[in-house]
Amino acid sequence: METPSQRRATRSGAQASSTPLSPTRITRLQEKEDLQELNDRLAVYIDRVRSLETENAGLRLRITESEEVVSREVSGIKAAYEAELGDARKTLDSVAKERARLQLELSKVREEFKELKARNTKKEGDLIAAQARLKDLEALLNSKEAALSTALSEKRTLEGELHDLRGQVAKLEAALGEAKKQLQDEMLRRVDAENRLQTMKEELDFQKNIYSEELRETKRRHETRLVEIDNGKQREFESRLADALQELRAQHEDQVEQYKKELEKTYSAKLDNARQSAERNSNLVGAAHEELQQSRIRIDSLSAQLSQLQKQLAAKEAKLRDLEDSLARERDTSRRLLAEKEREMAEMRARMQQQLDEYQELLDIKLALDMEIHAYRKLLEGEEERLRLSPSPTSQRSRGRASSHSSQTQGGGSVTKKRKLESTESRSSFSQHARTSGRVAVEEVDEEGKFVRLRNKSNEDQSMGNWQIKRQNGDDPLLTYRFPPKFTLKAGQVVTIWAAGAGATHSPPTDL
């Protein structure tokens, strides 16, 4: 069977082979063929449309019947899901209200924590001031004790010197008594010597008188005998007598002179000795008097100093007792304040721990409710997609609110971060928990396990030699990294520990 286009092609070929045509004729024939082709295509399209309309009418009838069946089946399910969705919305509203209440309680707890922290800071300042005052008082007490020990040692030294001076005074008084006794003995010996000298002088005078009498008696006897002796021998006898008398007189005078000289010499020697002894004793007595006077003056001065030191010692002891009493009071006050502060800190920690436990429990309940609501929403969306139902505006708002919801909680030295990733086909969620104590904190952990970043959050360098970082993902083997023995993380510095297959460059001390 030939198509209209094939017939047109045969006809035009025959005409062209029979007679030659002009260009205008050819153009018109071409346009006519195009119109015929378009008409044929339109006829085919109309036939196809008619057949499709016939099929569409049958399909519409089948769809109508199916919609009636589906509407009867879905009406009950939709009512049940609407009821469950209403319950879920009520639960979500109650959870939102509970969350708002918990946020209010958390803000209240934070305000109480700030207030307690301020009070604690003030108490710590008072405690530091009390400890500083206690240290000052202890230093003052130590200085006073040192001064007291010095004063006591000086007192003992002065008492020793006073005892020595008293012994010296006793010795000097004994020496003075001995000197006085020697002086009295010398004076007695001097008086005795003077008496003996006077006696010797009297004896000498008496001997002179006796010698004169004997001489006169001898002259008288000789004169008497001379009268009786011969005149011839008188001159010879007289001359001999005169010579004998002269010789006797000379001898007697020599003896008297020698005895006189010896007596005067002895007397002068004894007198000089007595005078020297008297002068020496008088000098000793003067020196003893002077030394005794000086000793008395020094004793008086030392007694005055001793009394002054005793007064100072009594004042120091009184002040020391006052300082000890004040120190005891300060210690009791400090202990009482410290006990009160520790009790308040313990109560505050217990209260904060209780509130944190309650908040953690409520947060766990909220997370469980969020997971249940998310599961209900997934089931509802799956059924709506299976039944090709359009979601209600309320469910769209709930989905938008659930997809944009995120929370971040800080308290008790722990930080909890939650992130949620969404897509049109599926939804997944993960959470990161970080707890830090000390100078070094974990700043970031790569989700794909490529690196771990640490930061020194203090103002001092931290030695991290032979420290270890351990990481384990589920049931995978435990991964451990040990820092070099001499590694030190500077204040405020960040160090990144890269995985072996991350392709990073080893560049200490920032990249390991």
Rank of each mutant, 00 (worst) to 15 (best):
R235Y: 14
L241N: 09
R225W: 08
E202V: 03
E228Y: 09
Q207R: 01
L271Y: 07
T266S: 11
N195Y: 00
E213A: 08
E238D: 14
A269K: 06
D254L: 14
L215F: 14
A250I: 13
F206I: 01
D185Y: 15
Q246W: 10
D254H: 09
E178N: 14
T224G: 14
V191T: 06
S212Q: 07
Q207W: 03
E213P: 02
I210H: 02
R220Q: 04
E214P: 11
R235H: 15
L188G: 01
Y211Q: 03
Q234T: 00
Q255R: 01
K270N: 11
A269G: 15
Q258L: 13
K261T: 11
A250L: 01
N195E: 02
A244E: 10
K233C: 14
E257I: 12
R221L: 11
D243N: 06
L183V: 05
E217P: 09
K219V: 10
F206M: 04
N231W: 06
K261P: 02
E223I: 09
Q184S: 14
E257Y: 10
L215N: 00
T218K: 09
H252A: 12
R235L: 13
D185A: 02
N195K: 03
N195L: 06
T266Q: 07
Q255A: 07
E257C: 15
Q198K: 10
D205Q: 08
Q184E: 08
K201Q: 06
D185K: 12
D272A: 13
E194I: 15
K261A: 10
D230P: 06
E262I: 00
L271S: 01
S212C: 10
M200G: 00
R240W: 07
Q234R: 12
E217K: 14
E186Y: 12
E238Q: 04
F206Y: 01
R190F: 10
R196G: 05
L226N: 12
A242E: 05
M200P: 04
N195M: 04
K265H: 06
L248D: 07
I229G: 13
M200Q: 06
R196Q: 06
V227D: 12
N195A: 05
V191L: 11
E203Q: 07
R225L: 03
Q251W: 02
K270G: 02
D185Q: 09
F206T: 01
Y267I: 01
Q251N: 11
K201T: 15
L188A: 03
D230L: 05
E236G: 05
E186V: 07
S212I: 14
E186H: 02
E253P: 04
K261D: 13
V256Y: 07
Y267E: 00
E203G: 04
Q207H: 05
V256K: 02
Q255M: 11
Q258F: 09
V227G: 15
M187E: 09
Q207E: 02
M187A: 04
D185G: 10
D205E: 02
A193N: 12
K208G: 00
D192S: 00
L248R: 12
E203V: 02
Q255N: 01
F206Q: 04
A193H: 00
Y267H: 02
Q182A: 04
K180E: 01
K181N: 01
L248M: 08
L226V: 08
E257H: 13
R216W: 07
F206C: 04
E217W: 05
Q184Y: 06
Q234G: 07
K260S: 07
A193F: 14
L241V: 09
K260D: 03
Q234F: 07
Q182F: 15
E253M: 07
R221S: 06
R190W: 01
E253T: 02
M187V: 13
L263V: 11
Q258G: 09
K261S: 15
E223C: 06
S239D: 05
E213T: 08
Y267L: 02
R225G: 08
E214K: 09
S268P: 00
R240D: 00
L188H: 02
A179H: 13
K180C: 08
M187K: 15
F237T: 05
D230V: 05
D243V: 15
E194M: 06
E264V: 15
S239L: 08
S268D: 05
I229V: 11
K201D: 01
S212F: 05
L248S: 07
H252F: 08
D254C: 15
Y211L: 14
E194F: 15
E186I: 14
E202P: 03
E213G: 12
E257N: 09
V227A: 11
F237N: 04
A244W: 00
N195V: 02
I229M: 12
Q207V: 14
E264K: 01
A242S: 15
Y259T: 00
A250N: 09
K261R: 12
Q182W: 00
E217T: 04
M200N: 09
R235Q: 11
E238Y: 04
K270T: 03
L245R: 10
I210S: 03
A242D: 07
K233E: 09
D205W: 00
K181T: 09
A244V: 09
E213Q: 10
S268E: 15
Q198M: 07
E228W: 01
A242N: 05
Q198I: 00
S239M: 13
V227E: 10
K260M: 07
L204W: 10
Q246P: 07
Q184F: 10
E257T: 12
I229F: 14
D205M: 03
L271P: 02
Y259N: 05
F237C: 06
Y211C: 13
S212A: 05
T218D: 10
N231R: 14
A244C: 05
Y259I: 06
H252Q: 10
L245H: 02
Q198L: 15
L188V: 03
R225E: 08
L215M: 01
Q198D: 01
L204G: 02
D185F: 00
A179M: 14
L197K: 15
T224S: 09
L248W: 05
K181F: 08
K233L: 05
V256G: 01
K201M: 13
Y211S: 15
S239C: 15
L215D: 10
D254Q: 10
E214V: 13
H252W: 02
E214F: 03
A244S: 11
S239Y: 12
H222K: 00
L183K: 12
D192L: 08
N195H: 06
K219G: 11
R189Y: 08
H222C: 15
E228L: 04
E186S: 13
K260P: 03
